[in-house]
Simulated assay, not measured.
Amino acid sequence: MTKTDIRKAVRKYFAQLAAEEYTKKCSRVHNQLYRTEQWRQARMIALTLSTKNEIDTRAVIKKAWSEGKQVAVPKVNPLTHSMTFYKLTSFNQLKEQYAGIQEPDASQAAPVLPEDIQLMIVPGLAFDWGRYRIGFGGGYYDRFLAAHLVPTCALALDFQLFEKLPREEHDKPVDILLTEEKVFR
């Protein structure tokens, strides 16, 4: 299968998933995350606001806030294919931006230095047993992580997991991949 075929297949699974089942599955993955040492030790968590083709991240943000953690979310620059992370203290600081994704309003949030991030939850549509991922096609996280050494993890539902995905030379695996039932390190 090509990356395009895999993206289509995963999007189809998400579209067919009932809301109640989606919530249940996401909760199992969230609980895997909250049990990790990386989560417990991190004071600042960076992640993207989820879309309909991803595990819910609003619940993760709320959990981080309830534990006194700081949260950083990215704002992308489509011209340079780069991201800047901003500290999020309220969902009211967000507005719909590039590609319909909720991003921080830079006039209401402070930028975060990459070295202040202790755990980055990297989004993706598909993942493999080697912790490699297929993202949404923009290369934003690949570029960011190539320039900054940040501990990473990814969250996936079981149907997003493949034995082996097509890889490119610049691809790097996440440090930890968490699914409903498994932890890949």
Rank of each mutant, 00 (worst) to 15 (best):
A146R: 12
D175A: 10
C26S: 13
T23Q: 15
K24M: 11
Q118I: 01
K164N: 06
L145W: 06
E163Y: 06
A72N: 07
S90I: 11
F14R: 08
M44I: 13
A15K: 15
V29A: 01
A19P: 13
N92Y: 11
I6G: 10
Y140A: 02
A126M: 01
D171L: 02
T84Y: 01
R11A: 11
K52W: 00
I176C: 07
T2N: 13
Q160A: 04
P74R: 07
P111E: 10
L125E: 01
I117P: 01
N31R: 14
L125H: 04
E115M: 03
Y86F: 15
A72F: 08
W129E: 12
G68T: 13
E96C: 07
D142A: 04
Q41P: 02
V71I: 14
V73P: 01
T4Y: 11
F14P: 04
S50D: 10
I61Q: 03
D105W: 06
I45N: 01
S107H: 13
T84P: 01
K62Y: 10
L88D: 04
D56C: 14
T2D: 14
S27Y: 10
F85Y: 15
R58V: 15
R28F: 11
D105P: 04
A72D: 06
P123D: 04
L155H: 03
F144W: 12
V60Q: 02
C26M: 03
L149Q: 13
E181I: 00
G139K: 10
K3W: 05
Q160D: 05
L47R: 01
N77C: 12
E37L: 11
V73T: 14
Y132E: 00
A18N: 11
P114F: 02
H170E: 09
A106T: 14
R40A: 10
P104A: 10
R11S: 12
D142Q: 08
L145G: 03
I117Q: 02
D105M: 08
L165N: 02
K24Y: 12
V10F: 08
I176L: 14
W39F: 07
A110M: 08
K12Y: 12
A126Y: 00
E21D: 14
H30Q: 12
G100W: 11
Y98F: 15
P123Y: 02
Y98A: 01
N31Q: 15
F184C: 03
D158W: 05
H170T: 09
V71H: 03
K3F: 06
R167N: 01
E180S: 02
A19I: 10
V71F: 07
K25V: 01
Q160K: 06
E103F: 03
R185F: 09
K172F: 00
L125G: 02
I61K: 04
G138A: 10
E37P: 04
R35C: 11
T4M: 10
Q70G: 11
N77D: 15
V71K: 03
C26G: 10
L33M: 12
V183T: 15
L17T: 13
P74L: 07
S90R: 07
K69F: 10
G100Q: 10
P173M: 07
N53V: 08
G68Y: 11
R40V: 05
L161P: 01
K95A: 11
G139N: 09
R131C: 14
R131T: 04
N53Y: 15
P151F: 06
